[in-house]
Design a protein around this nucleic acid. Structure first.
Lengths: 214, 214
DNA sequence: TAGATTGTTAATCGATTAACAATC
DNA sequence: TAGATTGTTAATCGATTAACAATC
């Protein structure tokens, strides 16, 4: 499983955007929303939206679109966002703190139940309502927290050591915000969030626009 | 240009990881690095690394690999990271502050020259060495800052209004950390960084591993 | 030299898009 | 009803992977 294979990955990545729009539609009282409207909103092709939504199993009505309530439920269910996920933040620095305060996570069932850090100045404080513990307490506390997901935001050079400890203590899903490739046992799922690759895209798009000749 | 079309997008997104490893290799005194080694480090196929690197124009030597120094320079050049990019951060909240303190940006030639925020408590302070100004000063200050890139980290409901002001004031590249789709003139390049889609991937991978039956 | 590694060309794979009949 | 929108099937497109001759 060293490299987890997910089919439909591009579709899955688009689902949260759809969910966002469909929830807005629900909030404004609509009962149906068409793929055409969603596509318009996100600058996509309607056929792509229909294809993506088909993975949720919801069928639409010609002329009306998809039933909003059922679609929200089906996307949440497909993503596993219909049940709570407890997570810990490891590394309560700038980025870790920002993630603790990120309001949207609640809408994904993601609950940050504790943070861990080496820095004695941070230990014992609350950041955005989350208690910060010393990393040494990790093994003691993790079982009681009912959390198997870790949001990793430590300095890059601690990343590998850190993840090994996390896995030993019971973590099996890691959202990796460091720029390190992590070596983990097969059963551990890792999603790397790579800011650099986003900036690479922005840089290249800028150059092309400015006539780099591509 | 409403939807900027970039060929090789997946390759471009991988280049920063390659660059990171090749720089490490350089730091440890190597003159050559093979695609095989890079692939091993990142859990990729060697053929993919070779294909990706070919877009930089650097040719390798059979049996030895690619010249480290030339490859670093070529990737930086391809990404436009060989020349400085001045950027402003708009929204000095949790995420905006974290981005100002993100050490890796320096290695990409990205320099944050100012931050803007509505909050009077923040205005006038320095965050990670970056001066925070009131958003009202945007139009006055931007011309003097020589910055055409904005890192957008305002609350989602301000995103659209905000980007319109930015564009009017001279911004032509936006790194969008809000969850909003932005409507912008064709000439403006936008890269959206969507945390939700990353979490969607993590959630689905977890479910598959736990036997959702996919 | 022998063999590891390259670059190229072709094959495969998967995602996007097009076409269109079905239908509310 | 007329027409917008759906779901399906097929075509296209682009990215990944395989095969292999060239070569240091």
């Amino acid at each position: 499983m060293a490299r987890m294979k997910v089919s439909n990955a591009p579709s899955i990545r688009r689902l949260p955007s759809y969910l966002h729009i469909i929830r807005q539609s629900r909030a404004s009282g609509d009962f149906y929303i068409s793929g055409t409207v969603i596509a318009q909103e996100l600058n996509l092709e309607p056929i792509q939206v229909r294809k993506d939504l088909s993975i949720t199993g919801i069928v639409g009505k010609p002329k009306k679109g998809y039933p909003v309530e059922a679609l929200v439920a089906a996307i949440e269910r497909y993503l596993g966002w219909d049940r709570p996920t407890n997570a810990i933040v490891v590394g309560a620095g700038n980025l870790g703190s920002a993630l603790m305060g990120y309001p949207e996570f609640q809408q994904h069932g993601l609950k940050i139940v504790a943070a861990f850090d080496q820095n004695p100045v941070k230990v014992g404080t609350m950041i955005h309502g989350v208690q910060v513990y010393h990393t040494d307490k990790l093994e003691d506390m993790l079982p009681g927290l009912q959390a198997h997901t870790a949001i990793l935001a430590v300095p890059s050079d601690h990343a590998q050591v850190c993840v090994e400890r996390l896995v030993a203590a019971g973590i099996n899903a890691v959202w990796n915000f460091t720029n390190q490739k992590l070596r983990t046992p097969d059963k551990v799922v890792v999603q790397r969030e790579d800011l650099s690759s986003g900036f690479a895209m922005l840089s290249v798009m800028t150059q092309i626009r400015d006539g780099r000749g591509d």
